[in-house]
Design a protein around this nucleic acid. Structure first.
Lengths: 418, 418
DNA sequence: GTGAAAGCGCTAACAA
DNA sequence: TTGTTAGCGCTTTCAC
């Protein structure tokens, strides 16, 4: 077993709930290593070797010990007990010690609801994502959660599965349950969402975008620019007939911006992104397959298909293999996001690297900064990066016989899949 | 815009917070479609077209309207207002209507902390996963969250990143913050975790396992059996020299069971799983690469490598390609989990299909059943399924020249990637 | 079916 | 530094 049950130390750091490894940004108090290893009074005396004076303390009607029980056992006032646990520097070491001892003996665990009600702080933040079922978002959530934990915040997550009407319900539900701040994806949200959040003055961070929102702050990158840059790379390979597979563009400015980034780059070359070559599908592997099926059924086919996410691209790639279409010889495919698997497909997927983890990390920092009204530093510019891999090849018409296989202008590179 | 601001209906269902699409399991009350579309009073009168009598209602010190404000405006008692929102069947339709009107006018949003404190229910559950950075877990969390939402519960997630000592901190922190139930992965947890949860009588569901825990219930499948079955399939291909790539087995009974399932199946054939061919690595693509590097550097190589997760397998597969090792001709590779991408690798990955989404769904149902003390039906037996795909081929020694490429005894099949 | 009132367990102001 | 006390906003008896 990892913990010494005898160890006497605090779960508590300054005005901050249990658990968090307060990073260097945190106020003074117990260090990470000192803190957090509070054992719990076992169910029966027989089960514990703790110094048993668990005694006949009168406890609250719920059965669980309350701070009042702790104070009584420690023979200090309620206030002192509260202070000891919230900010140990507010009480004498001796008081602290007695309180901690009582906490340990009783197996006391704070009541977050009471804390929240009295202090109007929940130390949790909400994050509503389009879906958790997307590696890029999962990565970001992962980083978000880890960073928040470091600051002492819990993460409440939910998703609306791209059903726009659900977002408000979801956000409302989360706000109702109580969070100190909120993270959403994109700038485009029902006005009710903004109204609700603004009315409550809830700190808000919008991710995955740089657009100016009617309320809140953003942490992200330019979807349009990323798509533009990637498209330039595609155009450089001589492609003129380009199709796009994207998610629904309605209510999703990210999808729209990616498409417009592409059409802008094409326009600069005097090319037009044909509307019938913009195919909307659910952002899944299956969606990619279906879209590619439609493309392959077309009379005139594009020579390059740019997918709005790697997941779509993987589906598209797979469909090509099924139909015996050689990628990139007969058709080039690009993705977007650069998920870990993008570099492992066959052929490896050309894509745009999106700083998913950074978005999570910096949105957490930004949000905590807003909540605690302290400066955690401006989030740096988050950059995308075009990653050329073998799924993007020269357009068939320009193909020289001798460079039929695997000849690339840029070398295939691997990013962030370590 | 999707919502009619004028719409007058409830956000509230019986004793259950806003939002959830109460499924058929829910008690009576507003239907999903009736519910939840409560607009919020906009910041300034100019911003809203609401029937403005927003008036000079004295509001609580926080600035936000409270139930008391609602009651006053509706001209009913606090109690009635509370009842109207918690269980509309407890008040007269007329009362309800007036309350709802007041709610709408004020843009009232319930205070979850106060609710939780008074009712001792938070309508949220905690889930602590090893990591969110694993498609199998992400799938499961996704299903979990969706199902919980249907029941009116919020999901608080956190991960311990396979650092066993962190789990207790994480669990404690979540419990402190307040949840009505808890979901963990596996049966093996520090006794402090069990002590804490047991002491608070917190409903507990352990997933991804069938082992009997000291406290709580399980929803899962047999890791040992799944590994056993897959190994039988490998053995049937004539492999005798089998290596295993797994995560750390310490504190992880799932990893141990998978390994022992393999060694048992081998033992039945009089084969031994060599300890030096059991390679522990972090459960990532990178871990799979590193492990395969080690294997390829060995004097005598195994003919089949069984990976404990698809992610590891994908890394291993990739490493083989990098080193020019043909899969499955020179080496067979299997995974575990059957993530969406398993069927899309080249060659497609033989693996065991794990009912990840079902685990999420049923653990949610089980937990809610425990919390609300109602019978939501016993979770059905969750079954794994061996999925033979091309990465598993005959052992090189038994290889007939004419079946060198792609000859399989079972046809490659695709599961659950639609 | 409704109103009045007593907490839920804690924090934070204020005195001492 | 410590103790006292008044709520935080809601649910839930308990009478009526």
């Amino acid at each position: 077993m990892v913990f010494s049950r005898m160890r006497l130390n605090s779960c508590f750091t300054v005005a901050r709930p249990t658990g968090p490894a307060c990073t260097s940004d945190g106020p003074t108090g117990f260090s990470y290593h000192e803190a957090l290893h509070l054992p719990v009074a076992a169910t029966g005396p027989a089960l514990t070797t703790s110094p048993s004076k668990i005694s006949s303390m009168p406890q609250s009607p719920t059965g669980r010990p309350t701070l009042e029980d702790v104070a009584r056992l420690a023979d200090v006032s309620l206030g002192s007990a509260s202070r000891a646990l919230s900010d140990s520097s507010l009480v004498k070491p001796k008081t602290l010690k007695r309180v901690m001892q009582a906490v340990e003996q009783l197996g006391y665990v704070r009541n977050g609801a009471a804390r929240a009600l009295a202090s109007r702080r929940t130390f949790s933040v909400g994050a509503v994502y389009p879906t958790l079922h997307n590696p890029a978002f999962a990565d970001s959530i992962h980083a978000l959660q880890q960073t928040l934990w470091g600051f002492g915040y819990q993460l409440v997550v939910a998703s609306h599965e791209y059903v726009e009407e659900r977002e408000y319900e979801v956000v409302r539900s989360i706000v109702e349950r109580g969070v100190d701040g909120l993270i959403l994806v994109g700038v485009e949200h029902d006005h009710q969402v903004f109204d609700l959040v603004r009315q409550r003055k809830l700190p808000l961070v919008l991710t995955w975008t740089l657009e100016q929102p009617p309320y809140g702050h953003t942490v992200g990158f330019s979807n349009r620019q990323a798509a533009y840059d990637l498209t330039r790379a595609v155009l450089a390979k001589g492609h003129k007939d380009i199709a796009v597979i994207c998610g629904s563009r309605e209510h999703n400015e990210r999808a729209r911006q990616r498409v417009s980034g592409t059409s802008e780059a094409m326009a600069e070359r005097g090319l037009t992104l044909r509307e019938e070559w913009i195919i909307e599908q659910p952002l899944s592997v299956e969606g990619g397959k279906l879209a590619m099926q439609r493309i392959l059924a077309m009379g005139q086919r594009p020579t390059a298909v740019m997918c709005n996410t790697d997941t779509l691209a993987i589906g598209a790639l797979h469909e090509c293999r099924v139909h015996g279409i050689a990628v990139p010889d007969q058709m080039s495919i690009t993705g977007y996001d650069d998920i870990v698997l993008a570099s492992l497909t066959v052929p490896p997927l050309a894509t745009v690297h999106i700083p998913t983890a950074q978005i999570g990390t910096f949105s957490a920092r930004r949000l905590v900064g807003l909540i605690e009204n302290r400066d955690l530093g401006e989030p740096p510019a988050l950059n995308h990066e075009v990653v050329i891999r073998e799924s993007l090849g020269p357009a068939p018409s320009t193909l020289q016989p001798e460079m039929k296989r695997g000849k690339l202008s840029g070398s295939a590179r691997t990013v962030a899949d370590s």
